[in-house]
């Protein structure tokens, strides 16, 4: 692909993403599944599991905010656009399917990134003052790797949302499999509970965690907020997330192409 074509593709993707931001960020399903649900989960684990450490609460809630926020938007946008046929308007416009779906993915990722940063800021800055978090003592934030981790995790989560929503004709059709997968991932990826504890009674199931991208997001987030950073481990986490994202996006593109045949 020539540079000019790449520039045009990214330009059109950004137009699609900006339109989605304008139209869908404040839709009720985006707010409920993207903002309320991670908060509910946070409080469930804080009140119901007092043994969970503050470090896990912080990284858990940031990971879940990014994960839910980024994956929710596609499950709202794509079925709504299919129902109103505005998705067809975009398909008949002069842009590649790749540019269109990358634009859709980007709007979800930006939603997840924004939520992740808002949650992290609240918990890091305001939390200690309210004394419902106590990580100021153990916090060892590495800003650039932390920002990079949030961005890559959001892209990965949005790609998952894209794949599961790309053929859905209704928001519920997309949300059902997505929520199933999201809850399974939250419980199996060591989000609020360390992996060793999660698989304490059945260690043979532990490899399952490494098949789920959220495990790598959580690990990278934990390294970049509480340290210590193991550079190779962090790099592997991020590379695996990028590979997952590429596979998910290309599978979504193929699914759309297949539906057009």
């Amino acid at each position: 692909m020539k540079m000019e074509e790449l520039y045009e593709m990214l330009q059109k993707s950004s137009i699609i993403a900006l339109n989605d931001i304008k139209l869908y960020y404040f839709k009720p399903p985006s707010i409920f599944f993207g903002i309320m649900l991670p908060l509910i989960l946070y409080f469930a684990f804080t009140l119901g599991r007092p043994c969970v450490t503050e470090a896990y609460r912080l990284t858990g809630v940031v990971a879940v905010s990014v994960f839910f926020g980024a994956s929710t938007l596609e499950a709202v946008v794509l079925p709504m656009e299919r129902r109103t046929r505005t998705f067809e308007r975009l398909v008949s416009a002069p842009l590649s399917l790749e540019a269109l779906l990358i634009g859709k993915m980007a709007s979800g990722a930006i939603f997840g990134i924004a939520l992740g940063f808002v949650m992290a800021t609240i918990l890091i800055l305001v939390g200690p003052a309210w004394q419902w978090t106590g990580f100021s003592a153990g916090l060892s934030l590495s800003p650039i790797p932390f920002i990079l981790t949030i961005i890559i995790s959001a892209i990965n989560s949005s790609s998952l949302g894209l794949l599961l929503s790309v053929r859905a004709g209704d928001v519920a059709d997309a949300m059902m499999p997505l929520n199933f997968l999201r809850f399974v991932m939250i419980f199996l990826s060591g989000v609020f509970i360390p992996l060793e504890e999660t698989y304490m009674f059945n260690p043979s199931l532990a490899p399952l965690a490494y098949l789920l991208p959220l495990t790598y997001s959580v690990d990278a987030l934990r390294q970049t907020t509480f340290g210590p950073i193991d550079l190779w481990k962090l790099l592997i986490d991020l590379v695996i997330l990028i590979v997952f994202s590429i596979v998910l996006i290309f599978t979504a593109i193929e699914l759309v192409k297949h539906s057009m045949r």
Partner: peptide, 22 residues
Amino acid sequence: ISNVYDDLTAWDNLMFMAKLYG
């Protein structure tokens, strides 16, 4: 089916399409 964006104004619909066509 007139597939314009319900939540946008007439003007914003046209601007969005015009941007997509560069």
